[in-house]
Amino acid sequence: YFQGQLNAMAHQIQEMFPQVPYHLVLQDLQLTRSVEITTDNILEGRI
């Protein structure tokens, strides 16, 4: 994955969860590489 793709995914998640800091979303995406998994992590309070 290149950074631009991760940034696009992070923006997509931020639209759904504007209360979660962008850098935390991006940090999780770098591990998961998945909008779905990061979204689940937010919903389950891991982020």
Rank of each mutant, 00 (worst) to 15 (best):
Y1G: 11
Y1N: 13
F2G: 12
F2M: 12
F2R: 08
Q3L: 09
Q3G: 08
Q3N: 11
Q3M: 11
Q3H: 08
G4K: 14
G4N: 13
G4Y: 12
G4H: 14
G4M: 13
G4R: 11
Q5M: 14
Q5R: 09
Q5C: 15
Q5T: 12
L6A: 04
L6Y: 08
L6K: 03
L6F: 09
N7T: 13
N7W: 14
N7Q: 15
N7P: 10
N7K: 14
A8K: 10
A8F: 12
A8H: 10
A8M: 13
A8V: 11
A8D: 11
M9G: 03
M9N: 03
M9C: 08
M9D: 06
M9A: 07
M9I: 09
A10H: 02
A10L: 09
A10N: 01
A10I: 08
A10T: 05
A10G: 05
A10P: 00
H11L: 14
H11P: 01
H11E: 10
Q12H: 11
Q12G: 07
Q12E: 09
Q12R: 12
I13C: 03
I13S: 00
I13W: 01
Q14K: 13
Q14E: 05
Q14R: 11
E15D: 10
E15T: 12
E15I: 13
E15W: 08
E15A: 14
E15Q: 14
M16H: 08
M16T: 07
M16F: 07
M16A: 09
M16D: 05
F17E: 00
F17H: 05
F17A: 01
P18I: 03
P18W: 03
P18S: 04
P18Y: 03
P18R: 04
P18E: 04
P18A: 04
Q19R: 10
Q19F: 13
Q19K: 12
Q19D: 12
V20G: 00
V20W: 08
V20I: 14
V20Y: 10
V20Q: 02
V20E: 02
V20F: 09
V20S: 02
V20H: 03
P21G: 04
P21W: 06
P21E: 08
P21V: 04
P21A: 08
Y22K: 06
Y22L: 13
Y22P: 06
Y22Q: 05
H23G: 07
H23L: 09
H23T: 07
H23A: 07
H23Q: 09
H23N: 10
L24F: 06
L24N: 05
L24D: 05
L24Q: 06
L24A: 08
L24E: 05
V25K: 00
V25M: 04
L26H: 05
L26E: 04
Q27L: 11
Q27H: 07
Q27V: 08
Q27S: 10
D28S: 04
D28K: 01
D28M: 05
D28Y: 03
L29F: 03
L29R: 01
L29P: 01
Q30S: 10
Q30G: 06
Q30N: 09
Q30A: 11
Q30Y: 13
L31A: 11
L31N: 12
L31T: 12
T32Q: 01
T32E: 01
T32W: 05
T32L: 02
T32N: 03
T32P: 00
R33A: 09
R33V: 07
R33D: 07
R33M: 15
R33L: 15
R33C: 13
S34W: 03
S34L: 03
S34Y: 04
S34T: 02
S34A: 04
S34M: 02
S34P: 02
V35Q: 07
V35R: 07
V35F: 09
V35T: 06
E36F: 08
E36Q: 13
I37Q: 11
I37E: 11
I37V: 12
I37T: 10
I37G: 08
T38M: 03
T38K: 00
T39N: 03
T39M: 13
T39I: 15
T39Q: 07
D40G: 13
D40V: 15
D40Y: 15
D40M: 15
D40W: 15
D40Q: 15
D40F: 14
N41C: 06
N41T: 02
N41G: 02
N41F: 02
N41Q: 01
I42S: 01
I42L: 07
I42Q: 00
I42E: 01
I42A: 02
L43T: 08
L43K: 13
L43R: 14
L43P: 00
L43N: 08
E44M: 13
E44F: 11
E44V: 08
E44I: 08
E44G: 11
E44P: 01
G45I: 04
G45E: 05
G45Q: 06
G45N: 08
G45K: 06
R46M: 07
R46F: 07
R46N: 07
R46E: 03
R46S: 05
I47Y: 05
I47K: 01
I47F: 08
I47Q: 02
I47R: 02
I47G: 04
I47W: 06
I47T: 04
I47L: 14
